[in-house]
Write a protein that binds this DNA or RNA. Sequence first.
DNA 1: CCACTAACGCTAATAATTTGCGTTAAGGTG
DNA 2: CACCTTAACGCAAATTATTAGCGTTAGTGG
Lengths: 184, 184
Amino acid sequence: MAREMLRQGGRSARIQEAVHRTVKELLAQMDRSEITVPMIAEKAGVPPSTIYRRWGDLSDLLADVALERLRPIADPEDTGAMGSDIETFIVDYAEEMSSDVGRGMYSDILGSSSDSAARCCHYTIHHLETLRQRAEGRGEPGFEVDAAMDKIVAPIVYHILFQDKAVTPDYCRALVSDFLGGKG
Amino acid sequence: MAREMLRQGGRSARIQEAVHRTVKELLAQMDRSEITVPMIAEKAGVPPSTIYRRWGDLSDLLADVALERLRPIADPEDTGAMGSDIETFIVDYAEEMSSDVGRGMYSDILGSSSDSAARCCHYTIHHLETLRQRAEGRGEPGFEVDAAMDKIVAPIVYHILFQDKAVTPDYCRALVSDFLGGKG
DNA sequence: CCACTAACGCTAATAATTTGCGTTAAGGTG
DNA sequence: CACCTTAACGCAAATTATTAGCGTTAGTGG
């Protein structure tokens, strides 16, 4: 992945923005296996060497873009109760990530030599942590975030990645209710 | 991945063997990001064009090699009882796959455009199925293979891939005993 | 043993990546 | 606010990887 930007403003930031935007546009138009660095460079209006120097190679650039897309911009929806909070978050997450674009983001992140994989799952942990704290603030008993990762998130991500079975909303809800039910 | 070989014998098979062996050797010596097709070609004694024509590109070749390494060669060890069969199989599997080489195989498989991901997890399902049948042959109650994939395999593979926590034998054993305990 | 053709080797053309070097502009300092 | 330092850039040349054409080799089935 890109090393942290040492300079945050001006030209450097404009290039980062233009390149990221271009990658997202290309990803929506064609298969990732057809995308090349020179192609991105031309569309974004920067020389290829700038991309190579800054991101290293295509897989690191794709991982960087994927990670940015996954970065939390808002907290999960507040539905009023812990069970429905978790269910809503998980069903939405699974739907978003089981698309071709979503699975592609996972592949890019896992194919990169950087630490983007660990970062990516920290985002999910962070969201679950938010839901846990919210529940406890309501006086609900809360839940173990690690256990939720193992029992809910891991199976969903596994099936998305290995494409061995369809990840349906019903399947997700069953995982959630199994997790919540197995506690009492 | 490589299309199925139309010709199984002679020269074609020798090349496949030489290339696979070379890839495994290189993988043991250096980081995968340093490996190139021309490098493999020279060491294996074949022209690069042959590799490109047959495997398409490097990621498909790596996925092909990874899949071959994961292909079951023997049934899981028979320890005399279902619980210890599952535990032994899972602990061994986790240990093997949590190495850098193991994680690399997953990355290669997930980064390929072929169906190698689904095949890879079918291998695991097949092994679990073997254990289930063996247990039932002994008069034991058996277990749900799908549930074992969700509750045992998925969390292990998730943590290996996303590198968010160490997958220790104790952790694996806890997953197995949780799975078996939650049934009675 | 012969015919058929998949798969190969070689080579030339094309495309991607790396590198050196001069230039621009961000961010800090007096 | 002008100046200094240097990260990051643009350009272009050199290197390396990939693709494609075409004749050749050698499995496979008859």
